[in-house]
């Protein structure tokens, strides 16, 4: 998938070191710092190698402070790397910041790019002029975005009066207005309700389908599953996982969980004998059961059949494996190595 397309983002040994003052507490500490300043260097991004192909949708995942946002800012030309190289569509982002700015779109979920005191329409018109988008193209794009983002109602509203969900929809339109080939999204669904999240995801899926290369950071793993095909995990400034999202799930998120309510107490031993490869546990009460099973070893219907042979099932709920499980296990250091991406994916 990624090997087939030409790379648009290429980073090698990308490193960003931040220097922070090392001050002892209190006045004496401050005075000592004044006389002889001490600093601690911390690599927020530590020799990151990254190759992203045209049209790829990549999830960039990590804990708070892992270096996600710093990477995005390095790729956007906002920060200057301490060492290493970056090329984005043939441009060095920080050296040719203005050239790079034309080909990328950046959305910071926590920082709006709208003019706080202007209506959404006015803000978008300013951006149209900043990026030199023609009036016809402007109208066409807004019409196109309107379907999913429902911009119509937002256009006459002053940005500071928008709800968070509305603001994010307007910000998405602002990010994609100039038709950027590459878009970085830093937590595009942060703080949104389910409906707003859904429209953000649907919009992003459309943009990916239209050929935009997307690199997205998020703590919401549904975002990632809905939009992205490739998963990169960063921890403490280093990339610790890079691979196909589906394969990662198949390899490491195989456990499905079936929660069942029954009408009479169950003989757990007999049930376990019938499902040798599953874990069968008592739930919160004697009438509740939790069965955890490998989705490649058992089908859900097999498990249900085994149960109904013994008791009457009143209700059940099936929980699919979450990419969260993969990430959690990677954090714990359980899955350091994934076999290289093959063509069989």
């Amino acid at each position: 998938m990624s090997s087939a397309s030409e790379p648009v983002i290429r980073a090698a040994g990308l490193t960003k070191v931040f220097r922070s003052p090392d001050k002892a507490p209190g006045l004496s500490g401050s005075l000592r710092h004044l006389v002889r300043p001490r600093h601690t260097n911390r690599a927020a991004v530590n020799s990151v190698d990254l190759t992203i192909g045209r049209g790829e949708a990549v999830a960039y995942v990590g804990a708070n402070g892992a270096g996600k946002s710093t990477t995005v800012k390095l790729l956007a030309g906002i920060l200057i790397p301490s060492s290493g190289t970056v090329r984005v569509a043939g441009v060095d982002p920080h050296r040719d910041r203005l050239v790079n700015a034309r080909q990328i779109g950046v959305l910071f979920g926590q920082r709006s790019q709208l003019w706080w005191d202007l209506t959404v329409r006015d803000s978008l018109e300013v951006l149209r002029d900043l990026y030199g988008v023609s009036r016809t193209q402007f109208t066409e794009r807004l019409d196109e975005f309107d379907e999913v983002l429902g911009l119509g109602k937002l256009l006459p509203v002053v940005a500071r009066r928008l709800s968070l969900g509305q603001r994010m929809r307007a910000d998405l339109a602002a990010t994609f207005l100039h038709g950027p080939a590459i878009v970085y999204l830093d937590e595009p669904t942060i703080g949104l309700d389910i409906a707003a999240k859904d429209s953000v995801r649907m919009f992003l899926r459309q943009r990916v389908a239209a050929g935009t290369t997307i690199l997205m950071t998020s703590h919401d793993l549904r975002d990632i599953e809905d939009v992205c095909r490739r998963l990169i995990i960063i921890d403490d400034g280093r990339i610790i996982f890079d691979g196909d999202l589906g394969r990662a799930k198949d390899a490491y998120a195989r456990q499905r969980q079936l929660s069942v309510q029954v009408d009479a107490p169950v003989d757990l031993a007999a049930l376990r004998a019938g499902l040798p490869e599953a874990q069968v546990e008592q739930g919160a009460s004697t009438r509740e059961l939790v069965v955890v099973f490998d989705r490649f070893a058992h089908r859900a219907t097999e498990v249900l059949d085994a149960l109904t042979r013994q008791v009457d099932v009143v209700d059940f709920r099936l929980q699919e494996p979450q990419i969260e499980d993969v990430v959690r296990r990677v954090y714990r250091g359980e899955l350091l190595v994934l076999p290289p991406q093959g063509v069989d994916a």
Binding site: K73, A76, G77, I78, R97, L98, V99, A101, R102, I104, V106, F108, R111, S112, Q113, L130, Y131
Partner: peptide, 13 residues
Amino acid sequence: SGMVAVDLTRPID
């Protein structure tokens, strides 16, 4: 506040 990051993504001086 770091909003300057947004300003720096613009293709203008």
